[in-house]
Design a protein around this nucleic acid. Structure first.
Lengths: 401, 401
DNA sequence: CTATAATTAAATCAACTTGATTTTCTAAAG
DNA sequence: CTTTAGAAAATCAAGTTGATTTAATTATAG
């Protein structure tokens, strides 16, 4: 009999680990907090919090701030995240560029390395990425024991025949290549690989506009278009790690042909590639997002036409996402330059009627998040930090098998 | 300073509660299991499992089966869910029918009551629902202490101005009406309200084709069309309880006008209402799904035409769901009669290329689940059982505030 | 009779809780 | 200005809870 891998039990050890994460997360989302207020927010006893805070301070993850006077009673000592409590490496691979960064626990970039590539194959890219990582460690002279891991962002989807490696928005030759395992082998550091959109979503969650949100969707406008799904306090990756690949949903049945074989796919209208194509660039494979920013600034009429044409498909994508997932907010970002994203966002209203049209809202339906070429590397660097410090169901369960 | 409601900490008490749920869930998904095998599956020690199983047997939730001989060692005593360990009331309200059922822990229907209604308002429906509940309790003479709660299913979306109460697929007058609170007040029993699709999804998860799945989407074809989202082992309801309302995503831009104000909405093509409209029934508000089953059996040409026209929008809906959520499987069901669902499913291939086209699959991309008029009541009855026995993150966290 | 596997019993352990106490401040009273 | 009461934070020490560990017991196949 085949037994389903059951959800597993928990014990004190897991509980402890969870509670430590809860303390960190509570401080991250709220800023510096005293032990007493952490206790109130987490429903743990003040004694427990005291113990945990002491341990985390010992470990260098938290640091005390100036005592808060002015109120009655013993003055509170607020604790905040110690930026130097840990470091993370973020890598990002795309058609033309490989970027690596080091960030500290506060998400601040401490080092950055960039290499040009040209639609690299795994054989070309893997050594390069490993080299970038060791470069970063060497030049930033960071304490390896405080390195939480490597986060890597690259375009999805993963492992889908006829989609992963097909067309100008995909990277060729990566179908079924075990990126994380290989990079882990080369560097000896734990590696987390996600698509651009997911990485960017985590970046927004830890340090950006989504800091306090439980459920949001990050629409990543890059070479193609993808969504990072953060639902009910955790990243939703899908059963085969491909959730959010909405670039290939059909927004215009019978519309522009797409390399995936369908017609009228979303990313044929809303993506860097779509813009390049619409502008009839001679060499769209080597065009730069900067060009679009220039054209926007100049008020180029062809680019304006693209903007106008892209708005309705984007509106429809937002509609689909809102209807399917009812998120608190949709965040727009990606490799598309910020001014262009803002121009698109500015033309979105009136949005379609959806479940997000609902009455009282705490946040706007659409907000603009981080955009530009470092969006996804910084998000990538946030991945290990998130996975090491976020309270999540997994952590509470004993590892099984 | 406004503090975000933090994720809260945990302690032994929560852990215990979680572990009990884990034991129940493990037995539910795998069938009868000995203490030793539960221990292996859950990663808990056999002593812990022994204690928990003893308690659960004491409480009547588990019962021992015949000892398993034939292997070496002391023979194992398998335990299974005791159907009489608890009962649940399911209610379902729709345009023409209010149904109530009692099920036991195994999901078996123990009693059923049905009342005709005609697009009822809250003032009409609430006393009726309360009466149905007390009828069920009285006639089935069930032990009130073993009643886990009332689950209720009704069409969504909830609380969306211009959508909740508009059009022939919605129930009028329910915008912002606090159904659960009111029914709880009238009956004195805990009430969980979900839309049809969500209820059906939970039913499939506990007792049906999705029993072993971690992530799946239930496409509920009813008067309208909605999706129940079960992602990463838990129900995803959305930030305003409206996730899965995909009946109003646009599948044909500029297509048939919809009462929500948009054009080409999915449920204008795939739903009972869409079929009735296509058949030009004189009184679509009072048509019955049975008619469609008859027409299908007869091979009615107009109905065949509807089937053919509905397939592509349905295919597109599946495409959107697969691309956005990468589920293990999409389950088709709803009020639409089973033969009709099967006819639709039979015409779906070839499905669009999506992330679900991936290589090795454990389950088919689309499976047919429970369909017919009792689908959502039975699912509704599953809701309290699920919420009382499923291991979930919430349970592990201390109630805050 | 022996190896094997399931189950049980008693003792132990780790982490959170409880309630009393101490510390350190503000605000009001004298 | 000094004193005192009141308030909130932090700490201390003992207590509680539930999982784990270790060892013993039981039942069966070979």
């Amino acid at each position: 009999m085949i037994l389903k891998k059951a959800i597993s039990g928990t014990n004190l050890e897991q509980a402890k680990s969870h509670n430590r994460r809860v303390v960190i997360e509570t401080i991250r989302t709220n800023g510096a907090l005293s032990r007493a207020s952490i206790a109130r927010l987490t429903a743990l006893s003040s004694q427990t919090i005291s113990n945990i805070v002491e341990e985390l301070e010992e470990a260098g993850l938290l640091r005390p701030e100036a005592t808060l006077k002015g109120a009655r009673g013993q003055p509170a000592v607020p604790y905040s995240i110690n930026p130097d409590g840990g470091y993370s490496i973020g890598l990002q691979l795309d058609h033309q560029l490989a970027v690596g960064v080091v960030t500290d626990l506060s998400g601040t970039m401490r080092a950055r390395v960039e290499r040009n590539v040209d639609r690299p194959t795994p054989a070309e890219a893997m050594p390069l990425l490993a080299a970038i990582s060791s470069d970063l460690i060497a030049t930033s002279r960071l304490d390896r024991t405080k390195l939480l891991g490597i986060g890597m962002a690259m375009p999805g989807p993963f492992g889908v025949e006829g989609m992963t490696s097909v067309g100008p928005t995909a990277l060729p030759g990566w179908h079924d290549f075990p990126v994380a395992e290989e990079l882990e082998r080369l560097t000896g550091i734990a590696v987390i690989v996600e698509n651009d959109a997911t990485a960017a979503a985590i970046g927004e969650r830890l340090y950006g506009v989504a800091r306090k949100l439980d459920s949001f969707v990050y629409l990543f406008i890059g070479t193609g278009l993808g969504a990072g799904l953060f639902l009910d306090g955790h990243l939703y990756k899908g059963s085969r790690h491909n959730a959010g690949e909405i670039g290939h949903i059909i927004v215009k049945p019978g519309g522009l042909p797409c390399d995936c074989g369908k017609r009228g796919c979303l990313e044929r209208y809303v993506s860097l590639r779509a813009a390049y194509d619409r502008l009839h660039l001679p060499d769209p494979d080597h065009a730069s997002p900067d060009l679009l920013e220039e054209l926007l600034a100049k008020g180029d009429s062809r680019f304006e036409a693209w903007l106008d044409e892209a708005v309705e498909p984007l509106r429809q994508a937002i509609d689909v996402v809102e209807m399917a997932l009812d998120p608190e907010t949709v965040v727009l970002g990606g490799f598309m330059p910020l001014p262009v994203i803002e121009a698109l966002a500015g033309r979105l209203e009136p949005l379609h009627l959806s479940v997000s049209s609902a009455t009282a809202r705490a946040t706007p339906r659409v907000v603009v998040g981080a955009a530009g070429k470092d969006t996804s590397v910084l998000g990538a660097a946030a991945l290990p930090i998130f996975s090491e410090t976020n309270p999540q169901f997994d952590v509470l369960q004993k590892p099984v098998g």
